[in-house]
Protein backbone atom coordinates (compact mmCIF):
# COMPACT_ATOMS: atom_id res chain seq x y z
CA UNK A 1 0.00 0.00 0.00
CA UNK A 2 1.39 3.39 -0.99
CA UNK A 3 0.01 6.91 -0.97
CA UNK A 4 -1.10 6.80 -4.63
CA UNK A 5 -2.95 3.55 -4.15
CA UNK A 6 -4.69 4.77 -0.99
CA UNK A 7 -5.73 8.15 -2.41
CA UNK A 8 -6.82 6.36 -5.58
CA UNK A 9 -9.08 4.06 -3.60
CA UNK A 10 -10.46 6.95 -1.57
CA UNK A 11 -11.10 8.95 -4.74
CA UNK A 12 -12.96 5.95 -6.18
CA UNK A 13 -14.98 5.64 -2.99
CA UNK A 14 -15.74 9.37 -3.03
CA UNK A 15 -17.00 9.13 -6.63
CA UNK A 16 -19.33 6.24 -5.81
CA UNK A 17 -20.72 7.95 -2.72
CA UNK A 18 -21.09 11.36 -4.42
CA UNK A 19 -23.27 9.72 -7.08
CA UNK A 20 -25.37 7.76 -4.60
CA UNK A 21 -25.94 10.82 -2.40
CA UNK A 22 -26.72 13.04 -5.36
CA UNK A 23 -29.45 10.68 -6.55
CA UNK A 24 -30.77 10.13 -3.03
CA UNK A 25 -30.85 13.80 -1.99
CA UNK A 26 -32.35 15.14 -5.23
CA UNK A 27 -34.67 12.12 -5.56
CA UNK A 28 -33.63 12.12 -9.22
CA UNK A 29 -31.20 10.38 -11.54
CA UNK A 30 -31.60 12.85 -14.40
CA UNK A 31 -28.41 13.14 -16.42
CA UNK A 32 -27.00 9.87 -15.09
CA UNK A 33 -26.41 6.99 -17.49
CA UNK A 34 -28.03 3.87 -16.05
CA UNK A 35 -26.10 1.86 -18.62
CA UNK A 36 -22.74 2.98 -17.27
CA UNK A 37 -23.92 2.08 -13.78
CA UNK A 38 -25.00 -1.40 -14.96
CA UNK A 39 -21.56 -1.85 -16.49
CA UNK A 40 -19.85 -0.82 -13.23
CA UNK A 41 -22.02 -3.28 -11.29
CA UNK A 42 -20.94 -5.95 -13.78
CA UNK A 43 -17.28 -4.87 -13.40
CA UNK A 44 -17.33 -5.19 -9.61
CA UNK A 45 -19.26 -8.46 -9.68
CA UNK A 46 -16.86 -10.19 -12.05
CA UNK A 47 -13.73 -8.75 -10.43
CA UNK A 48 -14.54 -9.44 -6.79
CA UNK A 49 -15.56 -13.08 -7.11
CA UNK A 50 -12.34 -13.80 -5.22
CA UNK A 51 -14.20 -12.60 -2.12
CA UNK A 52 -15.53 -16.15 -2.10
CA UNK A 53 -12.20 -17.88 -2.63
CA UNK A 54 -9.48 -15.92 -0.82
CA UNK A 55 -8.99 -13.46 2.01
CA UNK A 56 -6.39 -10.74 1.44
CA UNK A 57 -7.00 -8.16 4.17
CA UNK A 58 -9.81 -6.60 6.15
CA UNK A 59 -9.33 -3.38 4.15
CA UNK A 60 -9.54 -5.29 0.87
CA UNK A 61 -12.66 -7.23 1.86
CA UNK A 62 -14.49 -4.18 3.27
CA UNK A 63 -13.77 -1.99 0.24
CA UNK A 64 -14.86 -4.70 -2.19
CA UNK A 65 -18.13 -5.23 -0.35
CA UNK A 66 -18.76 -1.46 -0.21
CA UNK A 67 -18.02 -1.03 -3.93
CA UNK A 68 -20.27 -3.92 -4.97
CA UNK A 69 -23.04 -2.89 -2.59
CA UNK A 70 -23.00 0.75 -3.72
CA UNK A 71 -22.94 -0.26 -7.38
CA UNK A 72 -26.11 -2.32 -6.99
CA UNK A 73 -27.74 0.33 -4.81
CA UNK A 74 -27.11 2.89 -7.57
CA UNK A 75 -28.58 0.62 -10.23
CA UNK A 76 -31.60 0.00 -7.99
CA UNK A 77 -32.18 3.73 -7.46
CA UNK A 78 -31.97 4.44 -11.20
CA UNK A 79 -34.05 1.55 -12.52
CA UNK A 80 -36.51 1.04 -9.66
CA UNK A 81 -36.90 3.69 -6.98
CA UNK A 82 -36.42 6.80 -9.12
CA UNK A 83 -37.15 5.23 -12.46
CA UNK A 84 -39.57 8.04 -13.38
CA UNK A 85 -36.67 10.50 -13.42
CA UNK A 86 -34.36 8.30 -15.50
CA UNK A 87 -33.46 9.97 -18.77
CA UNK A 88 -33.63 6.84 -20.94
CA UNK A 89 -34.18 8.72 -24.18
CA UNK A 90 -30.69 10.19 -23.95
CA UNK A 91 -29.04 7.03 -22.60
CA UNK A 92 -28.84 5.31 -25.95
CA UNK A 93 -25.31 3.91 -26.04
CA UNK A 94 -25.40 0.25 -27.16
CA UNK A 95 -23.58 -1.56 -24.34
CA UNK A 96 -23.38 -4.81 -26.29
CA UNK A 97 -20.84 -3.01 -28.49
CA UNK A 98 -18.64 -2.82 -25.39
CA UNK A 99 -19.46 -6.05 -23.57
CA UNK A 100 -19.08 -8.42 -26.54
CA UNK A 101 -15.66 -7.25 -27.82
CA UNK A 102 -14.35 -6.89 -24.26
CA UNK A 103 -15.53 -10.44 -23.50
CA UNK A 104 -13.78 -11.73 -26.60
CA UNK A 105 -10.57 -9.90 -25.72
CA UNK A 106 -10.64 -11.29 -22.17
CA UNK A 107 -10.74 -14.81 -23.64
CA UNK A 108 -7.83 -14.07 -25.96
CA UNK A 109 -5.51 -11.95 -23.80
CA UNK A 110 -5.29 -13.03 -20.16
CA UNK A 111 -2.78 -14.25 -17.59
CA UNK A 112 -4.34 -17.69 -17.31
CA UNK A 113 -7.15 -19.49 -19.11
CA UNK A 114 -9.24 -20.19 -16.03
CA UNK A 115 -12.79 -18.98 -15.27
CA UNK A 116 -11.89 -16.64 -12.39
CA UNK A 117 -8.90 -15.18 -14.22
CA UNK A 118 -10.90 -14.61 -17.43
CA UNK A 119 -13.67 -12.90 -15.46
CA UNK A 120 -11.10 -10.74 -13.65
CA UNK A 121 -9.54 -9.79 -17.00
CA UNK A 122 -13.01 -9.08 -18.42
CA UNK A 123 -13.68 -6.72 -15.52
CA UNK A 124 -10.41 -4.84 -16.02
CA UNK A 125 -11.09 -4.34 -19.74
CA UNK A 126 -14.73 -3.47 -19.19
CA UNK A 127 -13.97 -0.91 -16.49
CA UNK A 128 -11.69 0.96 -18.87
CA UNK A 129 -14.62 1.70 -21.20
CA UNK A 130 -17.61 1.52 -18.82
CA UNK A 131 -17.89 5.30 -18.57
CA UNK A 132 -18.48 5.71 -22.32
CA UNK A 133 -22.32 5.58 -22.09
CA UNK A 134 -22.15 8.39 -19.51
CA UNK A 135 -19.80 10.51 -21.62
CA UNK A 136 -21.92 9.79 -24.69
CA UNK A 137 -25.02 10.93 -22.83
CA UNK A 138 -23.35 14.20 -21.80
CA UNK A 139 -22.14 14.86 -25.34
CA UNK A 140 -25.67 14.21 -26.59
CA UNK A 141 -27.47 16.51 -24.17
CA UNK A 142 -24.59 18.99 -24.19
CA UNK A 143 -24.58 19.55 -20.44
CA UNK A 144 -24.14 17.97 -17.04
CA UNK A 145 -24.93 19.11 -13.55
CA UNK A 146 -21.94 20.27 -11.55
CA UNK A 147 -22.22 17.45 -9.03
CA UNK A 148 -22.18 14.93 -11.89
CA UNK A 149 -18.93 16.45 -13.10
CA UNK A 150 -17.44 16.10 -9.59
CA UNK A 151 -18.40 12.42 -9.73
CA UNK A 152 -16.70 11.98 -13.10
CA UNK A 153 -13.63 13.88 -11.94
CA UNK A 154 -13.15 11.64 -8.88
CA UNK A 155 -13.75 8.56 -10.99
CA UNK A 156 -11.14 9.64 -13.54
CA UNK A 157 -8.58 10.70 -10.93
CA UNK A 158 -8.82 7.28 -9.27
CA UNK A 159 -7.37 5.39 -12.23
CA UNK A 160 -4.81 8.10 -12.92
CA UNK A 161 -3.58 7.69 -9.32
CA UNK A 162 -3.42 3.94 -9.86
CA UNK A 163 -1.02 4.59 -12.75
CA UNK A 164 1.34 6.30 -10.31
CA UNK A 165 0.76 3.39 -7.91
CA UNK A 166 1.88 0.97 -10.61
CA UNK A 167 4.98 3.03 -11.38
CA UNK A 168 5.76 3.02 -7.63
CA UNK A 169 5.21 -0.72 -7.35
CA UNK A 170 7.38 -1.41 -10.37
CA UNK A 171 10.32 0.52 -8.91
CA UNK A 172 10.00 -0.56 -5.29
CA UNK A 173 8.51 -4.05 -5.56
CA UNK A 174 9.36 -5.11 -9.09
CA UNK A 175 5.65 -5.73 -9.58
CA UNK A 176 3.80 -5.03 -12.79
CA UNK A 177 0.62 -6.32 -14.37
CA UNK A 178 0.56 -5.47 -18.06
CA UNK A 179 -3.18 -6.09 -18.45
CA UNK A 180 -4.09 -3.71 -15.65
CA UNK A 181 -1.56 -1.09 -16.78
CA UNK A 182 -2.64 -0.97 -20.43
CA UNK A 183 -6.34 -0.92 -19.49
CA UNK A 184 -5.62 1.73 -16.87
CA UNK A 185 -3.86 3.94 -19.40
CA UNK A 186 -6.79 3.58 -21.84
CA UNK A 187 -9.25 4.36 -19.04
CA UNK A 188 -7.35 7.49 -17.99
CA UNK A 189 -7.02 8.72 -21.58
CA UNK A 190 -10.80 8.50 -22.01
CA UNK A 191 -11.16 11.04 -19.20
CA UNK A 192 -8.55 13.49 -20.49
CA UNK A 193 -10.93 15.54 -22.61
CA UNK A 194 -13.30 15.67 -19.67
CA UNK A 195 -10.52 16.70 -17.25
CA UNK A 196 -9.69 19.62 -19.50
CA UNK A 197 -13.30 20.81 -19.61
CA UNK A 198 -13.70 20.26 -15.88
CA UNK A 199 -10.71 22.41 -14.97
CA UNK A 200 -11.43 25.19 -17.46
CA UNK A 201 -15.21 25.40 -17.20
CA UNK A 202 -16.82 23.79 -14.20
CA UNK A 203 -15.19 25.82 -11.49
CA UNK A 204 -15.59 29.04 -13.45
CA UNK A 205 -19.19 28.76 -14.62
CA UNK A 206 -20.67 26.16 -12.26
CA UNK A 207 -22.46 24.74 -15.23
CA UNK A 208 -20.88 22.19 -17.50
CA UNK A 209 -21.76 22.60 -21.16
Amino acid sequence: MNVFRLTGDLSHLAAIIILLLKIWKTRSCAGISGKSQILFALVFTTRYLDLLTSFISLYNTCMKIIYVGCAYATVYLIYAKFRATYDGNHDTFRIEFLVVPVGGLAFLVNHDFSPLEILWTFSIYLESVAILPQLFMISKTGEAETITTHYLFCLGVYRALYLFNWIWRFYFEGFFDMIAIVAGVVQTILYCDFFYLYVTKVNAVQRFQ
Partner: peptide, 10 residues
Amino acid sequence: DQNLQQKDEL
Protein backbone atom coordinates in the same frame (compact mmCIF):
# COMPACT_ATOMS: atom_id res chain seq x y z
CA ASP B 1 3.40 -15.72 -12.55
CA GLN B 2 3.00 -13.22 -9.74
CA ASN B 3 -0.10 -11.79 -11.38
CA LEU B 4 -1.90 -15.01 -10.62
CA GLN B 5 -1.28 -14.57 -6.93
CA GLN B 6 -3.94 -12.98 -4.79
CA LYS B 7 -5.05 -9.70 -6.27
CA ASP B 8 -4.67 -7.12 -3.55
CA GLU B 9 -5.65 -4.14 -5.69
CA LEU B 10 -9.20 -2.98 -6.11
